[in-house]
Computed example of a mutant assay.
Amino acid sequence: MRRLRSRGPLLWIAALVALACTAPVADAKPIAPAEPIASCAPALAATAVPASIPVLDWAENIGYDAQGNVWVSRVYRNVVQRYDRSGALTATVPVEFPGAVRSGPDGLLYVVYGDTPTSVFRPGGVVRFDPTAVDPKPEVFVSGLASMPNGAAFDADGYLYLGASLSGVIRVRPDGSIDTDWTAQAPETSANGVVVHDRVLYVTSNGGPLGRILRIPIDAPGSPSTVADLSSPVPGVPDFVDDLLIDPAGILYVTTIFGQLVRVDPATGAACAVLNGEPLTSVVAIPGQSGQLMAGTESGAVLRIQLPR
């Protein structure tokens, strides 16, 4: 999700506070002043794909196809790009303000579009295409979402869940129609990243307070609970949570605009930062490589991350 582009910390903090005051609230509770997240065993990060033009190449999201190619949403370029295992660029597909990139149960690649506040006037949705094609041609799967859609995740039954910054979580049926009854029960919060694990959605939310991770039961979307509220390295200042993944052991890894990659245990809410650096937009596990992640950044570089063993 995009925010003010200035790197000045006071402007960042002002933007965070303003959003916290205006965004919808999922389950409002008094929040104690945030303390900086403790560090834990550090991860190692190296650049896998450099940015050719910093910021213009902003890597909003990352996903893998079944062939092991990595796809990167270049939101300011209005494209998603395919890179092979060597890091070579092999395809560029036009998608307007692309967000999450996810491989679907049918083998097609699904890309959220309209990840911009202007989706209120020019609604977004989801396109899909064959990722194995030499020149992939996107087709519309979902349209008409005036809610700034961004994150996405499929469940085992083929339903697609979209994190929408201006409305909350949207459930899409396998035929591309919106499940309005389920969606109406889900919390109205500023949703961003979404992952599915054991009939539960984990959602990053910045809708009062900032930095919240929600647990939403798929079978009871009207009964969300808070997993954790993440803080920044600045004492008393919450962080802005962006994307997240869940590993096979059920541990969450969450990216933030303060450049943290935070490890969160959903069972206890315990959190610690395994990485601190530049603002991180997205994170995905590298298929078949335990403890290896890829992360997008606001600069546009894609990082390869080795988690501590």
Score class of each variant (00 low, 15 high):
residue 284 V to W: 04
residue 265 D to S: 15
residue 243 D to S: 15
residue 303 L to G: 10
residue 227 V to H: 01
residue 221 P to C: 12
residue 255 T to L: 05
residue 277 G to N: 13
residue 224 P to D: 01
residue 263 R to S: 11
residue 265 D to Q: 14
residue 289 Q to C: 02
residue 272 C to Y: 09
residue 226 T to F: 00
residue 252 L to T: 04
residue 235 P to M: 09
residue 299 S to V: 06
residue 239 D to R: 09
residue 303 L to F: 15
residue 217 P to N: 10
residue 257 I to H: 05
residue 266 P to G: 11
residue 261 L to R: 08
residue 259 G to F: 10
residue 271 A to I: 08
residue 276 N to F: 13
residue 256 T to N: 07
residue 270 A to W: 04
residue 281 T to E: 06
residue 263 R to K: 15
residue 243 D to W: 13
residue 271 A to P: 03
residue 289 Q to P: 01
residue 299 S to D: 03
residue 274 V to I: 15
residue 243 D to E: 14
residue 285 A to F: 07
residue 294 M to P: 02
residue 258 F to Q: 05
residue 297 T to E: 05
residue 302 V to R: 06
residue 286 I to N: 02
residue 260 Q to H: 14
residue 234 V to A: 11
residue 278 E to T: 11
residue 245 L to Q: 06
residue 276 N to Q: 15
residue 242 D to G: 12
residue 249 A to N: 12
residue 296 G to F: 02
residue 281 T to M: 08
residue 223 S to W: 00
residue 230 L to T: 00
residue 265 D to L: 13
residue 301 A to L: 11
residue 232 S to V: 09
residue 295 A to V: 05
residue 293 L to I: 14
residue 232 S to H: 10
residue 217 P to F: 10
residue 283 V to T: 05
residue 238 P to G: 13
residue 243 D to I: 13
residue 247 D to Q: 02
residue 224 P to T: 00
residue 262 V to N: 05
residue 300 G to I: 06
residue 246 I to S: 02
residue 219 D to S: 14
residue 225 S to G: 00
residue 226 T to K: 00
residue 284 V to Y: 03
residue 226 T to A: 00
residue 295 A to F: 04
residue 246 I to E: 03
residue 263 R to G: 08
residue 254 V to G: 03
residue 250 G to Y: 07
residue 293 L to W: 14
residue 300 G to N: 08
residue 224 P to V: 00
residue 302 V to L: 14
residue 225 S to H: 00
residue 268 T to Y: 05
residue 276 N to P: 03
